[in-house]
């Protein structure tokens, strides 16, 4: 009987087995001092076991497991990832450094730093030998003797169709050559502004000469600077029609447009020209005839 009861001690301690088994055991222990003492010692033994401090894995155990589990057998450290294998990564990294250095040097040379502007200005004459940055007008304006001859030709041309003027090239011919654009890219902002002013002045001078050549007898002569020449031409056409005048050279390709309109309508034309673009009067007769001839160089 004691043997059977002691076999059920684990069932009692762990509350396992059947309730009937545990009840039988308890009933026996209640009446058996030896078994009661044995049960007490049994419980104490189990309590000792359960009181054992849990063991902790060594430090860095996780790292060692992860290293062993990684595809290469171990996880490489950060520096190893960067530099190893040396025979592969060192040349690649050296080449990358050289490339970055070259790029940085190139960008520094290309950047328009303020202190570099004087150096560029000083270097401009050398560059201008290849592509003159300014003064397209002198190139287009004939010398004194030539001007006279051209002036005579122009008088003839005034009566002739305007294609001769167009054939000479539009105002855009004053635009700088490609080589100059490249030069301008390296200029500082003030230098660019100066150059731009000179170019505009040159273009205006060219247009002025053309206007003179084309219509020396106009009562009013001026330059209409616009963004969209075609749109300006259409607006001008409408305006002149509204004022009762007409365009003497309305063909689309003409740079200089001759307008003939009643003298009374001239003030309104002048106001309309200002609305269309930047209207600069180069010549205006002191006494306007009726009708008035107005030459507009659309620029």
């Amino acid at each position: 009987m004691c043997h059977d009861a002691r076999e059920s001690f684990s069932a009692l301690v762990d509350v396992s087995g059947t309730a009937e088994e545990r009840a039988r055991c308890l009933a026996h222990v209640a009446g058996c001092a030896d078994c009661a003492r044995e049960l007490e010692r049994f419980r104490a033994t189990v309590a000792l076991l359960r009181a054992v401090e849990p063991v902790r894995a060594p430090a860095a155990f996780v790292d060692r497991v992860l290293e062993a589990a990684s595809p290469g057998g171990r996880r490489p450290r950060v520096l190893e990832r960067v530099f190893f294998p040396l025979q592969w990564k060192l040349p690649i990294e050296a080449a990358a450094l050289v490339i970055v250095g070259v790029l940085v040097g190139y960008l520094v040379r290309q950047s328009p730093e303020p202190e570099q502007a004087p150096r560029h200005d000083a270097a401009r004459p050398a560059v201008s030998d290849v592509a003159p940055p300014v003064a397209p007008a002198p190139a287009l304006v004939p010398k004194t003797e030539e001007r006279r001859a051209v002036s005579q030709d122009a008088r003839k041309a005034a009566a002739a169709p305007p294609k001769s003027l167009d054939a000479a090239g539009p105002v855009e011919s004053a635009s700088p050559p490609a080589g100059k654009e490249e030069f301008r890219g390296r200029e500082s902002a003030p230098a660019l502004e100066r150059q731009l002013e000179k170019e505009v002045a040159g273009a205006r001078a060219t247009a002025d000469v053309r206007a003179k050549l084309a219509s020396p007898d106009a009562d009013v002569r001026g330059i209409l600077a616009v963004k969209d020449r075609e749109a300006a031409r259409r607006q001008l056409d409408e305006l002149v029609g509204k004022l009762g005048g007409h365009l003497e050279r309305p063909d689309p390709g003409a740079a200089v447009i001759q307008i003939l309109l009643p003298r009374a309508a001239y003030p309104e034309l002048a106001q309309g020209l200002v609305r269309i673009g930047s209207w600069t009067i180069q010549h205006e007769s002191a006494e306007l005839p009726d009708p008035v001839r107005v030459n507009v160089t659309v620029n």
């Binding site: 001690f9 684990s10 010692r41 049994f42 104490a44 033994t45 189990v46 000792l48």
Partner: peptide
């Protein structure tokens, strides 16, 4: 097996038990 093991331990630890 568990019961046998506990009983063995109880016997071996007798001097520490009540």
């Amino acid at each position: 097996r568990l019961h046998r093991a506990r009983m063995d331990l109880k016997d071996k630890l007798e001097r520490f038990l009540p």
